[in-house]
Computed example of a mutant assay.
Amino acid sequence: MTNSLDLEHLRTLIAIAECGGFSKAAAVRHISQPALSQHVRLLEKGLKRKLFERDGRTMRFTPEGEKVLAEARTILEVHDAAIRRLNAVQGSTIVVGSTEHSAEQILPEMLRSLDEAFPDSSTRFEIGRSTQLIEAVGRGAVDLAFVLDPSEQGPGRTVGRLNLAWYAAQNWVAPGSDEPLSLVAFEEPCGLRERALSALAAQGHRVEVSAQSTTLEGVLAGVRAGLGVALLPSAGGLPRGLVERGDLPDAGAVNLQLITRRGLRPEITDTALRAGTQFYRDRPHLQLVSEQRDVVGA
């Protein structure tokens, strides 16, 4: 058993739990996925216990891993509180929120921009659903956030615009005219869910929500299992194991908005807006439905 625990390795463990996976946690921690995996291996080696186990195509915490995760949260809370009491923190912390749809794309670019513009400040990221992030910004827990706005009437400033596309498992078969169409969606409240229901109803489809989840990974898992179709932003790549359905109604596009808390320094807002808009300006394919995708029924 190890005599000490590396604080950065513990932060990695917490990031995996909060982000729901290794790849998103690596983006938030601004390290490569192999480096993140190495953090986990070193923790497992030092503690002589397995922290993760495979569940299908994903990894989940073992019961021992859950115990270590709880201890990691306690250790870091005590450590960070002590640092604050000793006035050892230099500069401020900028808390940036992002939806799962845009986390892997925008956050690394945002980290670089904020580090360059504010070298005396640190950056912390929060990954969540748009509704949660809007609430967090409203109460001041998050400084700025990139959120989806299916209503096109939400707060903030537009960073980019993403087409919406229908996705299904490769072997999914559309129901007959006398059968309801199965939809996999985010739990309410969710603007994408409402957009999907409205678009399908406008074409006379009867819809049944066959599965729902609070996370993007959960929605994708339900679609891969053949439980139904999902309406998601078309963000530059076809989700693994899925096809795009061109035989379902056009659901339009969705804005990616930058929202900021009241009182945030204007230069921070301007830096974030420039970084976000430049990211999409340099990558126009992210705002277009790729012609090379496997589109079924088009």
Score class of each variant (00 low, 15 high):
residue 156 G to C: 15
residue 156 G to Q: 13
residue 156 G to Y: 14
residue 156 G to H: 15
residue 156 G to W: 15
residue 157 R to N: 15
residue 157 R to K: 15
residue 157 R to I: 15
residue 157 R to H: 15
residue 158 T to I: 14
residue 158 T to D: 10
residue 158 T to L: 10
residue 158 T to V: 10
residue 158 T to E: 06
residue 158 T to Y: 11
residue 159 V to C: 14
residue 159 V to W: 14
residue 159 V to P: 12
residue 159 V to T: 13
residue 159 V to A: 13
residue 159 V to G: 13
residue 159 V to R: 12
residue 159 V to F: 10
residue 159 V to E: 14
residue 159 V to Y: 11
residue 159 V to D: 14
residue 160 G to M: 08
residue 160 G to I: 13
residue 160 G to A: 15
residue 161 R to V: 14
residue 161 R to I: 07
residue 162 L to H: 15
residue 162 L to S: 12
residue 163 N to D: 09
residue 163 N to G: 14
residue 163 N to M: 07
residue 163 N to P: 12
residue 164 L to F: 03
residue 164 L to Y: 05
residue 164 L to C: 03
residue 164 L to S: 09
residue 165 A to K: 08
residue 165 A to P: 02
residue 165 A to F: 05
residue 165 A to R: 05
residue 166 W to P: 00
residue 166 W to A: 06
residue 166 W to L: 02
residue 167 Y to V: 01
residue 167 Y to N: 00
residue 167 Y to M: 01
residue 168 A to Y: 11
residue 168 A to H: 11
residue 168 A to M: 11
residue 168 A to F: 09
residue 169 A to N: 03
residue 169 A to W: 01
residue 169 A to H: 12
residue 169 A to Q: 02
residue 169 A to F: 05
residue 169 A to V: 00
residue 169 A to P: 00
residue 170 Q to K: 09
residue 170 Q to L: 01
residue 170 Q to I: 06
residue 170 Q to P: 02
residue 171 N to Q: 11
residue 171 N to R: 09
residue 171 N to V: 05
residue 171 N to A: 14
residue 171 N to P: 07
residue 172 W to V: 04
residue 172 W to P: 02
residue 172 W to N: 03
residue 172 W to L: 11
residue 172 W to A: 02
residue 172 W to M: 09
residue 173 V to I: 14
residue 173 V to S: 14
residue 173 V to F: 13
residue 173 V to Y: 09
residue 174 A to C: 06
residue 174 A to Q: 10
residue 175 P to R: 09
residue 175 P to Q: 07
residue 175 P to I: 07
residue 175 P to F: 06
residue 175 P to G: 05
residue 175 P to W: 12
residue 176 G to L: 06
residue 176 G to P: 03
residue 176 G to D: 06
residue 176 G to S: 08
residue 176 G to Q: 09
residue 176 G to R: 05
residue 177 S to D: 04
residue 177 S to E: 03
residue 177 S to Y: 00
residue 177 S to H: 00
residue 178 D to R: 08
residue 178 D to W: 04
residue 178 D to T: 09
residue 178 D to G: 02
residue 178 D to P: 10
residue 179 E to V: 05
residue 179 E to I: 07
residue 179 E to W: 04
residue 180 P to C: 03
residue 180 P to L: 03
residue 180 P to W: 02
residue 181 L to K: 08
residue 181 L to F: 03
residue 181 L to Q: 10
residue 182 S to A: 09
residue 182 S to W: 04
residue 184 V to E: 02
residue 184 V to G: 01
residue 185 A to S: 14
residue 185 A to K: 06
residue 185 A to F: 11
residue 185 A to E: 10
residue 186 F to H: 09
residue 186 F to R: 10
residue 186 F to E: 11
residue 186 F to A: 05
residue 186 F to P: 10
residue 186 F to C: 01
residue 186 F to M: 02
residue 186 F to L: 07
residue 187 E to C: 07
residue 187 E to M: 07
residue 187 E to Y: 03
residue 187 E to G: 04
residue 187 E to F: 01
residue 187 E to V: 06
residue 188 E to I: 03
residue 188 E to V: 00
residue 188 E to N: 03
residue 188 E to C: 08
residue 188 E to A: 07
residue 188 E to M: 07
residue 189 P to A: 00
residue 189 P to S: 00
